[in-house]
Design a binder for these strands. Structure first.
Ligand SMILES: [Zn+2]
Ligand SMILES: [Zn+2]
Ligand SMILES: [Zn+2]
Ligand SMILES: [Zn+2]
Lengths: 137, 137
DNA sequence: ATAGACCCTAGACCTAGGTCCAGGGTCAAG
DNA sequence: CTTGACCCTGGACCTAGGTCTAGGGTCTAT
């Protein structure tokens, strides 16, 4: 056996076989060798690489960003600082998203607090606020 | 003039005309009357309604949720509390998203702090962490 | 009367990250 | 030899919220 079939890789990496073909099309993982029946034969460390991808996704990296990280990993003149810069840039964008969600939350909580428990919907300050008059901030 | 053409509504509400047609297909705004040339003629308050939609989107509501809010508004037996419940449910889901982003951020910051400024990429703790060994948490 | 600005419809296209399907080949077990 | 589990490709489909195009009709000003 010179490699793993796609089904084995998928099983051990915890992904769908179609996901592996998709990653290949997206150049996230390299093109594997083929056997005489045109079956893909993956090297063992593909499993590790796919799990790398999945963990990076959980940290909020897109596939495009993950590709860059993987390229850095094999690049001869990349330094640890290059990787850290990517991570810190991601932290910045996470901060932005978090701030924006927090401001949505603040506005909603404020409106909900003004809402009376069982008045008619015509007097609802939430609907009123959405319904013109001025921005919810 | 018995109503506003789609272009006027779009201009005053700050959206694309296609967006208005899209909202109509999605039943977010009602079907307007048509004139003899089959042009849409909107009542004045459509502008207000579209702005309502845009503000609700900024608060994180999906179009489907906004539809529900708008239905509540015209529902005879809806109370203020119904609206507040929707708002609080949205707050819950915002909380979840925020927590998840914060946990990504925590993990990334931790990794970046361990990263040496200019060691070779082969020793990068970020790549190491992604690259097997165990979950980043 | 004709240019340019609007309007109409149906349907394609876009992002992201896959998933699924049709139609066909391969391989091992019984 | 047949059955079932795999594998292959290309392309369609999905969500969400739109945007854009093609091909046509209408309206207004010059
Ligand atoms: Zn395994
Ligand atoms: Zn590093
Ligand atoms: Zn206006
Ligand atoms: Zn209320």
């Amino acid at each position: 056996m010179v490699g793993l079939t796609i089904g084995k890789v998928a099983e051990h990496a915890g992904v769908n076989v179609d996901t592996l073909r998709y990653y290949e099309r997206q150049d996230v993982i390299g093109k594997p060798l083929r056997n005489g029946s045109n079956y893909r034969l993956y090297p063992e460390d593909t499993i590790r690489r796919v799990r790398f991808v999945k963990r990076a996704q959980e940290l909020g990296f897109s596939l495009a960003e993950i590709k860059e990280l993987l390229e850095l990993r094999v690049s001869k003149n990349a330094s640890c600082a290059n990787v850290r810069d990517q991570a810190l840039a991601k932290v910045d964008s996470l901060n932005e998203k978090i701030r924006s969600l927090q401001s949505m939350r603040r506005a909603l909580v404020k409106l909900a607090n003004e809402c009376s428990d069982d008045g008619p919907v015509g007097d609802c300050p939430i609907l009123d606020a959405l319904d013109e008059k001025g921005r919810v901030r």
